[in-house]
Computed example of a mutant assay.
Amino acid sequence: MIHYLKLVHMELSRFSKIYISLFSFVLLAQFAIVWMKAREITNEAAAFNGLNLNAGPGVLYPMGKVNFADVMSQSMFYMIPAFLCASVLLLYIFGIWYRDWLFMNSFIYRLLMLPGPRYSIYFAKLSAIIVLVLGMVAYQLALLPLEITFFHALVPEELRDTVSTMDYIRSDYILQLLLPSTFMAFVIYYGTGLLAVSILFTSILIERSYRWKGLAGGIGFAGLCVLIVISPFLIWDSIESHLYPMEIFMMELALGLIVGVMSIWTGMFLIKKKVSV
């Protein structure tokens, strides 16, 4: 266990500078967007009331009162920083393995020669990805109340409606995926992500074990796993009328577990018996 924890700490440390840079980028970019949208609202309100002197005391903004949720849902730029960070983490699923071969060839040699079971390397890298993803999600959710407070401070009360953090999360489809309202939904969404990472990890190890033949093998393995998982939808017309929705869900859950166990077991076998430098 200590060997595994040291490996996880090492993997997180190696990505820490990039991770902190991503945090800083999201912070600065999103607060800048909130500031620009708030300034745009106040400027439009000032211009509207300046040109429409007979609008009446109750008319302050041409579109009525605004709130943070509506304003940000209409801004295509607000979530772009988070999407860019998600893309970096997605690429790092490959980078967490390939950097040890392509950029630091001697490092993978030292890593494989460390005392302790080799499968600890697999689980350490998998755990590092999970921690990085959950950390980024938690950071984004922690920023929301600060951004909402910032927006409320910039936009006068007579121009806006107050919205809470949970109200905004409920109104945004992407945030509902990041923070599901039920435990079962959380298990499904993040379990699917974990399944996808384990499939990619094993595909990478197949390629690293057999090189050019392994490249085709890795792609084929990933394709086979996806085919198994989506197989109920390929025969949907046949099973829809014979099975209840809960039975279909349990079938999908069982297939996901089978593919996940198969991927992890194959990855453990490869890193123990086949992977070399």
Rank of each mutant, 00 (worst) to 15 (best):
S73Y: 00
F107N: 09
V71A: 01
Y78S: 08
D70W: 02
L159I: 06
I93F: 07
M104W: 15
E158R: 12
P145E: 10
T149D: 15
P115Q: 08
D100W: 04
W101G: 10
L159C: 07
A138F: 13
M76H: 02
L114K: 07
M72Q: 00
I80A: 01
Y98Q: 12
F68G: 01
P145T: 08
F151W: 03
A138Y: 13
L154G: 07
L144R: 01
K125W: 08
F151L: 02
L91H: 14
P117H: 07
N67I: 05
V133N: 07
I130R: 06
S120R: 12
V66I: 15
W97H: 13
G64F: 09
V66F: 13
F103Q: 15
G116D: 07
Q140R: 01
R110M: 15
P145L: 13
L141E: 02
H152M: 13
M79I: 05
Y122S: 05
F94Q: 12
N67Y: 13
C85I: 12
T149F: 11
P115Y: 04
L134H: 06
P115G: 02
Y109G: 13
F94K: 05
L91S: 15
L84F: 06
T149S: 14
A128C: 04
F123L: 10
L143A: 02
M136K: 03
I93N: 10
P62L: 04
T149Y: 14
G95S: 10
M72H: 00
N67T: 09
F123S: 09
W101P: 09
S127V: 06
Q74D: 00
L141Q: 03
V155N: 03
I129P: 00
